[in-house]
């Protein structure tokens, strides 16, 4: 039996037409992600990467016209953002919002309690601090208000911290690599790789640049152009793109 058939399908997107408010951006998008697979989604600006991310996490402004998105057997479109999280979906946002007065730690605690349904407080505190240390995050951030005053890089790290703590089934990373300096990129990538080893999530890595793919080696690479997949392949496709640019794909 082929190895692929053993791995269960986490996310199956078929013929998706979707957009932001009234604008249609994705025009017949298809993608399948299995357990433990890391898929990189690349494409020029305006190709629909953000739209896809918004559709998957259920942002109020995202509109699905037609097509299907099945997430672990459930019709994703019918689930609220909270239900999606409980079902095991995690989105690392490109521009995480600030929420004043809510500390990062308390927020994590509430989310964990909600998604996992039970929580061992003593263990939880230690786990969070350990993860923060691995990300080389100052523990003081845990008591600071969620994302308030965090630099771009610190916000991204905070997103990864949340991911590690919540250990979701599928992770969607919306341009996590943008705005990270070399050191931060390496640390974040190490954590993503560790996540792969420890809880084996499916990962959709939406990225504009190629850098992160040097550290987080994808199993599949998809190129999105004008709302559709224009090319697909293995990790070597990324290298080809880096050499030739997106024009090569447009053909």
């Amino acid at each position: 039996m082929r190895p692929n058939a053993e791995k269960s399908i986490l996310l199956e997107i078929k013929d998706l037409y979707a957009g932001i408010e009234s604008r249609e951006i994705l025009k017949g998008f298809n993608l399948t992600i299995r357990e433990g697979e890391t898929h990189a989604l690349m494409g020029p600006n305006g190709s629909g990467k953000s739209t896809l991310a918004n559709v998957l996490c259920g942002h109020p402004r995202a509109q699905v016209k037609s097509g299907s998105i099945i997430f672990r057997g459930e019709n994703l479109v019918k689930l609220s953002p909270e239900e999606r999280a409980k079902h095991g979906l995690f989105m690392a946002f490109q521009y995480p919002v600030e929420v004043t007065g809510v500390s990062l730690f308390n927020f994590l605690k509430t989310a964990y309690g909600s998604v996992k349904e039970k929580i061992d407080y003593a263990r939880f505190g230690k786990m969070v601090r350990d993860e923060a240390e691995k990300l080389k995050m100052d523990p003081a951030f845990l008591s600071r208000y969620l994302n308030e005053g965090f630099s771009g890089g610190e916000k991204k790290k905070a997103e990864i911290l949340q991911m590690m703590v919540l250990s979701p089934k599928i992770v969607i990373m919306d341009e996590t690599d943008s705005g990270l300096d070399i050191d931060a990129l390496r640390i974040v990538s190490e954590e993503i790789n560790r996540a792969r080893e420890s809880f084996n999530p499916g990962i959709l890595l939406i990225t504009h640049y190629f850098r992160i793919l040097k550290y987080v080696r994808p199993d599949f690479v998809h190129v999105l152009v004008d709302g559709r997949i224009a090319a697909e392949g293995g990790a070597e496709l990324a290298t080809k793109l880096e050499e030739n640019g997106y024009e090569w794909v447009r053909g």
């Binding site: 909270e82 989105m91 929420v99 007065g101 998604v115």
Partner: peptide
């Protein structure tokens, strides 16, 4: 801010709890 509500919900927090967290957070300063 709707974006704040959405962010909290995307982490599995129910709307009611998210509202309460934000209201409590509002008084923190």
């Amino acid at each position: 801010d709707e974006e704040q509500l959405f962010y909290l919900e995307s982490r599995g927090v129910s709307r009611a709890t998210a509202v309460r967290m934000i209201v409590e957070g509002f008084f923190e300063p």
